[in-house]
Measured scan of single mutants.
Amino acid sequence: MTFKAIINGKTLKGETTTEAVDAATAEKVFKQYFNDNGLDGEWTYDDATKTFTVTE
């Protein structure tokens, strides 16, 4: 399945996608990506659209 992340950061904005077997796996991938890029913020997840949003 394809999962999307919308990034609303102070220094980084945009979208990225990942292929994962479930939402928990996708969340781990996205959180690692955000940690690697120095992002920290509020997380939400919309199961209907398979979209994570992080707002810094």
Rank of each mutant, 00 (worst) to 15 (best):
Q32A: 12
E19L: 13
Y45Q: 00
K50C: 06
V54K: 02
G9N: 05
G41D: 03
T44A: 10
G14Y: 15
I6P: 01
Q32S: 08
T18R: 05
T18C: 14
T17V: 09
E27P: 00
G38W: 09
K31D: 00
D36C: 12
I6G: 01
F3Y: 12
E56C: 13
A5L: 15
A24Y: 09
A24N: 07
A24D: 07
T25V: 06
A5M: 15
K13W: 13
T25P: 01
F30W: 02
D36E: 12
A5E: 03
A48M: 11
A26H: 01
L39V: 12
T49F: 04
E42C: 11
K13E: 06
T11H: 12
K10F: 12
L12Q: 10
N35Q: 14
D40Q: 13
L12R: 07
E42W: 10
K28V: 07
T55M: 07
T18K: 03
F30M: 03
V21F: 11
A26N: 00
D36L: 13
T18M: 10
L12D: 06
E27G: 06
F52R: 00
G9L: 15
N37P: 04
G14R: 12
T55S: 08
T44F: 10
D22F: 03
F34M: 13
W43C: 02
D46E: 06
A24R: 08
F30A: 00
T49I: 05
V54L: 13
T51R: 01
T44Y: 10
W43M: 07
G14C: 15
K50H: 11
A23S: 08
A26M: 02
G9E: 03
M1F: 14
F52D: 00
V21Q: 11
Y33P: 01
E15A: 09
V29M: 10
T2D: 04
F52P: 00
F3L: 02
F34Y: 08
N35K: 15
E56H: 07
T53F: 15
V29H: 13
A48F: 10
A23P: 06
K4Y: 13
Y33E: 01
K28W: 09
D40V: 14
T25H: 11
F30D: 00
V54F: 15
N8P: 03
M1H: 12
V54Q: 03
F52K: 00
E19P: 03
E19V: 15
M1K: 10
L12S: 08
T11D: 08
T25W: 06
N37Q: 14
F52E: 00
E56K: 04
G9C: 14
T2N: 06
L12N: 08
A23W: 11
D46L: 03
A23R: 12
K13F: 12
T16E: 05
F30K: 00
G41A: 09
T11S: 11
L39Y: 12
I6A: 03
E15L: 10
G41R: 06
T49Q: 04
T53S: 06
T49V: 04
T17N: 05
K50Q: 09
T49M: 05
D47F: 06
A48E: 11
T55V: 10
K13N: 09
F30G: 00
T2E: 08
A48H: 08
F3H: 03
D36K: 11
E27M: 14
D36W: 12
E15K: 05
V21W: 11
N37H: 14
V29T: 08
F34L: 12
N35D: 09
A26T: 01
G41N: 06
I6N: 03
T18S: 04
K4D: 03
K50D: 00
E19H: 13
I7K: 00
M1Y: 14
E27R: 09
T49S: 09
I7V: 09
N8D: 08
F30E: 00
L12Y: 14
K10V: 13
E27Q: 12
T44H: 12
T25M: 10
N8E: 06
E15N: 06
N37M: 15
K13G: 07
G41Y: 15
T18V: 13
W43L: 06
